[in-house]
Computed example of a mutant assay.
Amino acid sequence: MSEEAATVAQIDLALVDDCIERFFAVSSARARRFGRPSEELWRVLRRASMGGKRFRPRMVLTAYAGLGGTDAHAAANVAAAYELLHTALVVHDDVIDRDWSRRGEPNVAGSFRDTGTTGGLALPTAEHRGVSAAVIAGDLALAATTRFIEASGVTGDRRARLLEILDDAVFASAAGEMTDVDLALGVMPTVDEVLAMERAKTSVYSFEAPLQSGAVLAGAPESVVEALGAFGREIGIAYQIVDDLLGVYGDETVTGKSVLGDLREGKRTMLIAYAATTDCWDDIAPYLGDPDLTEDRAAELRATLETCGAKSAAESRIAEHAALARAELAALPYELAERLEHLVSELLERVR
């Protein structure tokens, strides 16, 4: 990406942050009318929205700028809609996964649980308080996403199409989340079932919908919108496989993610689904999902996953989906295709 394009992206992301900050300022002021519990809810939710990489807004702005869009106000608001959607889905996902922290800090549920125990509540009661607050907070963020589309000032068919794309993203993510819950139970899913779940749960709202929204906002023809959706689908699946691979084989100092967490949880990723079809499975299954898994045993599991071909199969699928994503770039204007090629190269670099 050129230095000029990177500078524009930085300016636009600052505008996205401004949109989100104004939203929380207004919401926090409204909350004062309802007393301390509502104020605390909005304060904690605001904190949960901070500190991210603004990846989904970047997708919106990349497509919009690459297609010649110039309305920074409209673009920033549409981009902010996807950032708030991400916040909502993460808050709810933590509830489903029974997690109390994120990035090493208490999440929404954990914050309300902790203030409950500090205030003298028994742990089960405090945990119920935390889960309840997280459900409400996630609902508030989810319900507010369309307000940013309205705030963009877009009208007519473009407004209707933006709302449709956002709604489809929410619908897909809910379907993927429910599938994820069920795939964690019972019979081991196939590789394709795992990837279909990950695409619906995360890739649609992280790649496909933001890219398409940027294109619609820029007034691009439907052929370009569809090509961006196809690109987003393929690169999104590749990204999910990369994340699963780095969750076992990554460098914690680079990724910030433990390479023990997925193994201790017994997370059914592509790696595990593939391994379950091999003769090595009996050497893996007894230790997968052990919360006390040691570093030495984890190293043995990694070696076995490599021996059985699971790691190379994941790497092959990454390359396959990256190639399919690149094939969609031919239908896009050169400047936008160049920016998205940078995204593909960045992805492949993560697993080298």
Score class of each variant (00 low, 15 high):
M197V: 13
G229K: 10
A227P: 07
E193N: 05
S213L: 06
G214C: 00
A215L: 05
D192S: 06
S206L: 00
F231N: 07
V224R: 01
D192M: 01
R199C: 12
A218M: 11
E226S: 12
R199T: 14
S213P: 12
L211V: 05
Y205V: 08
S203L: 07
T202Y: 05
L195D: 07
P221L: 08
E226N: 13
G219V: 07
E222P: 00
S213Y: 09
L195K: 03
K201D: 13
A215I: 05
F207R: 04
A209P: 03
V204S: 04
V204M: 08
M197Y: 11
V225K: 07
A196F: 02
A220F: 13
V224Q: 01
V224D: 02
A230M: 11
R199F: 12
E198H: 15
S213H: 05
S206N: 06
F231L: 02
F207S: 05
S203C: 06
R233Q: 10
K201M: 13
S223Y: 10
G219M: 09
P210V: 02
G214Y: 04
P221N: 06
V225H: 01
A218K: 02
V204D: 09
A209W: 00
E198A: 15
A196C: 07
F231C: 00
G229S: 05
E198K: 11
E234M: 11
G219E: 07
S203W: 03
E193F: 04
E193G: 07
A220R: 12
P210F: 01
A200W: 12
A218T: 02
A218D: 09
A196G: 13
M197D: 06
V225D: 08
K201F: 11
G229A: 07
P210Y: 01
V204C: 04
M197A: 09
F231M: 08
Q212G: 02
